[in-house]
Amino acid sequence: MSVKHPVVAVTGSSGAGTTSVTRTFQEIFHREGIEPAIVEGDSFHRYDREQMRAALADADATGHTLSHFGAEANLLTELAALFRDYGESGVGSVRKYLHNDDEAKPHGLPAGTFTPWEDLKPGSDLLFYEGLHGGAVTDTVDVARHVDLLVGVVPIVNLEWTQKIFRDKTERGYSDEAIIDTILRRMPDYVQYICPQFSRTYINFQRVPTVDTSNPFTARTIPTADESFVIIRFADPKEIDFPYLLSMLHDSFMSRTNSIVVPGGKMHLAMQLIFTPLILRLMDKRPKRPR
């Protein structure tokens, strides 16, 4: 962990909603004049799109598990090294995964590939990561130990599947069979690599729908924010001003001494109220820049 060069990581599985949390952080950074170095978790996948297809075919032929959730398909050693190097000296090597033609065109590369590795631009105030493995720990790699603020985004599993299924059908044109195959293939890695991270986070945001999601494979819509509650769990509740949060977040309540429950429509406001002082605290600990 670092005082001079903080590392903030938002971790959650595919379809969990980490992108929405990232937008909230970006608003805070902009408002407070903070310059982040943004790192996307997809950039630390081991394989590009075509390589992953080939690797999956080999895995199927040999009967072993391979998914983007697991260590084998990701560069976790390199991710830990980035967090460590940035924390020590504000430097590190990154690249970008090009998801589609719009992202790929400015780089003159095909979609589904990576840009070349390059050094982070100097002068950033903190490193911000969003992806699958911000709190990952394996027998050989400990990514989580280098993170100063680790946030988990964890909708209950049926809602997570509903969000993924809906996105993969409407945005990517996947069939039900292909989506189910992906979910089943990822399950061992989900249990081994994704779930344990949420016991290492400083804060977890878990959205719980108040409508029936019993069969996510037949859902025609994603439950809205107003059809949900959000459980916010803190690892160290002594640092949190719960009376203030309860007064600012109408209809919220405490469910445990370390957890507050807020209406889903208040999630963005709750994140603003919680993250802003935490980020400013990280900034206040840094040595002042010479003028």
Rank of each mutant, 00 (worst) to 15 (best):
E239C: 11
R84F: 00
Q272R: 14
L273H: 04
K121H: 01
N158P: 09
Q51N: 14
D101F: 07
D102T: 15
R207L: 13
R289D: 07
Y190G: 04
K105P: 10
W161R: 10
T18K: 15
A136I: 02
S20W: 04
D236H: 15
G70Q: 13
V3G: 09
L82Y: 02
S13D: 05
F128M: 15
H268E: 14
S89D: 01
P116C: 02
E177V: 00
K121S: 02
H133A: 15
R186N: 10
G12K: 05
S89H: 00
G264T: 12
M248P: 00
T218Q: 09
T224P: 05
E35P: 02
T22C: 05
P277K: 02
R46W: 13
A54D: 12
T201W: 14
V94C: 07
G92E: 13
T24M: 06
L273D: 03
A71C: 05
P188E: 06
G123A: 04
E130R: 04
E78Y: 05
D236L: 14
M271H: 03
D284Y: 14
P216S: 08
A57E: 13
D148L: 09
T19Y: 06
Q192P: 07
V208W: 04
L245E: 12
D60W: 09
E78F: 03
N158Q: 11
D85Q: 11
V151C: 10
I165H: 02
G173T: 01
I231R: 09
S2A: 15
Y193I: 05
L282V: 03
F198V: 09
T276N: 12
Y202D: 15
V261D: 15
Y244L: 13
H68P: 00
H268W: 13
